[in-house]
Design a protein around this nucleic acid. Structure first.
Lengths: 343, 343
DNA sequence: TTGAAAGCGCTAACAG
DNA sequence: CTGTTAGCGCTTTCAA
């Protein structure tokens, strides 16, 4: 392997017979340079294949062109699809992504924030299920522009992009009711206290109320993640607790929904014949799994894209109109929910 | 948002009443320093919350502590699980990951290599299906340590980590034969020419030969990716072409296998009753999907871990024993393959 | 329009 | 053991 010494601005200057300032000017287009000189420098640059060292540049400009992205886990499909959006847009703006995994552990979140901070990232996108106040504080204290992508930002004063949880949950619940389901179990993510403020729960309740169905807290389950395993376990619990099985289960994510379906199968129930199941997110998996998932579509790629655009605006010191932006959703009907009325 | 001026080595030196070199020495533990002085400096550091600026450090040491990882797509489960391994190990060695997507496009691969190079990454891990000679050349010319994670490195002289494709394919084929399957279709990734040198094909053929089953090229399908869609399409093709349906289909990945299964379903065949399907990789999805996938387990996390360790060794200038390392595999029996003899 | 020079924050000789 | 000094490669005043 040949390790070549990289060529620097000095080399270019020497070759072109100008000062390094001039070279700097042409590569940054920062100050007027005679066309003739400019061309000469450009030629040399092309000839030598010179690429400015961003480290040196960053050192003086204090701009690293780096954005940190903290995700619960890359293998989580939800995060991965958002990551795609982040990656693509950031490249467009000449930013690079520094990636960190947290496994949803607060300590890892904190550690990674500091790590990224040390690496001089200009902004941080934080993807998480639940927003921890301490994490918010640390981020705020650091002075680094940060935007959260999370289920919901509730009452915390942060930059946040998410889908419209309240109406989405309401509409899916309504859809389920319209299909003849009355006993609808709901799965939520978060800790127990968070439940009170959960927008999805509110939407669910509202739809119930409008249809004169009594709210039954025994069929809403709160779990700490949005994994397949959590959905599987909660469903087993749910079905063993209740004497009468629910007509439908509204899961907190598509992965959870699949856990739900498999648990139903393993307990001898058919989906959707015995129990209907609805997901959330419309991840790639939702179309692949059989029965295909009826779910709430969310523009995951766009969520990532919007978040990164916010960060870039903040970095540039531009004004952000809304601290919280929500993106549209859509109910997508597939196979996992049955119409009980025509049954 | 408060943007504070970061505190520098000078500030620490002043506060501690020593020179900046001394501070540098204590933070790097590079030269002996009196315990008393050391402690004083350490105290100031803790007090002020000083964090060395890695940019400045990198500029002089020429070490960015950055490793570039190029993946076909983050949403690909295979890549994502490997990425997990890479991420975790690199953090252990104080390296950070710079991520780039290629969507398997050669141009994007080339572009990203240059981008990462400009960002001064010390090494590059390249995850790809097919190894392109030009990409290899560019990487080699750059002088940056690189290791490939790909299906197989065939005859190309590069650092590569992969699973033992030949024996794995052979063993799975043998397993299928043992279960009474004779007409076994095979799915491969790569371009047509690559087929000739494909290790999996070799393993497959070898198992066939040992069991005196004639090789039938009409039931081996080569496709360009390892996606669900590719598996789905190829299966439709396969089943419409052949008058007699195959007993089993050995897919090139778990995602492909699921595409195969769904195509079978959609064509009215049951899996595994009518057609058995085997996967490759043992991705999370393989356990989740129903029927659960019988597949070849590969230590994905470890593949990432080994690759990153190789890079770090190379960066340090240490000798690498083997340019190509292969990791063990294991046949995992689940539900997608039936025993035809007891049927 | 251009060049000289200072300096970003840090490490690494080189003296002492 | 410690301080001084010279850069790393680049941007940015400040003069000319």
């Amino acid at each position: 392997m040949v390790t070549k010494k990289p060529i620097t601005i000095k080399d270019v200057a020497r070759e072109a017979g100008v000062s390094i300032s001039t070279v700097s000017r042409v590569i940054n287009d920062s100050k007027p340079v005679t066309n003739e000189v400019k061309q000469r420098v450009l030629d040399i640059i092309k000839e030598t294949g010179y690429v400015p060292n961003p480290l040196a540049r960053s050192l003086v400009t204090k701009k690293s062109q780096l954005i940190g992205v903290i995700v619960p886990e890359v293998t989580d499909t939800f995060s991965a699809e958002i990551l795609n959006g982040i990656e693509e847009i950031s490249k467009m703006y000449d930013y690079d992504i520094l990636l960190a995994n947290t496994y949803s552990e607060k300590e890892a979140e904190l550690k990674n924030i500091n790590l990224l901070r040390a690496k001089q990232v200009e902004g941080i996108v934080m993807i998480c299920w639940d927003i921890d106040q301490e994490v918010v504080n640390v981020l705020e204290n650091s002075g680094i522009p940060a935007v959260f992508i999370s289920k919901t930002s509730r009452d915390i004063d942060i930059y946040n992009v998410s889908t419209q949880n309240y109406p989405a949950a309401k509409e899916m619940t309504k859809y389920l009711i319209d299909k003849g389901h009355k006993k609808i179990a709901l799965m939520l993510t978060g800790n127990e206290n968070a439940e009170l403020a959960d927008e999805r729960l509110e939407g669910y309740k509202s739809a119930l109320k409008e249809n004169k169905i009594k709210f039954d807290s025994s069929i809403v389950k709160t779990m700490s993640g949005t994994t397949y395993e959590a959905g599987y376990a909660s469903t087993k619990e749910l079905l063993s607790e209740s004497k009468e099985i629910p007509h439908a289960i509204f899961a907190s994510s598509d992965e959870v929904a699949i856990g739900v379906i498999n648990a139903c199968f393993d307990l001898g129930y058919k989906v959707p014949e015995d129990i209907s199941v609805a997901g959330f997110n419309d991840v790639k998996l939702a179309k692949i799994y059989r029965p295909k998932l009826t779910t709430v579509y969310q523009p995951l790629f766009d969520i990532g894209a919007v978040a990164i655009r916010m960060i870039i605006k903040m970095v540039k010191g531009e004004e952000i109109e809304d601290k919280k932006v929500t993106l549209p959703f859509k109910i997508v009907e597939r196979e996992s929910v049955i119409d009980r009325k025509t049954k």
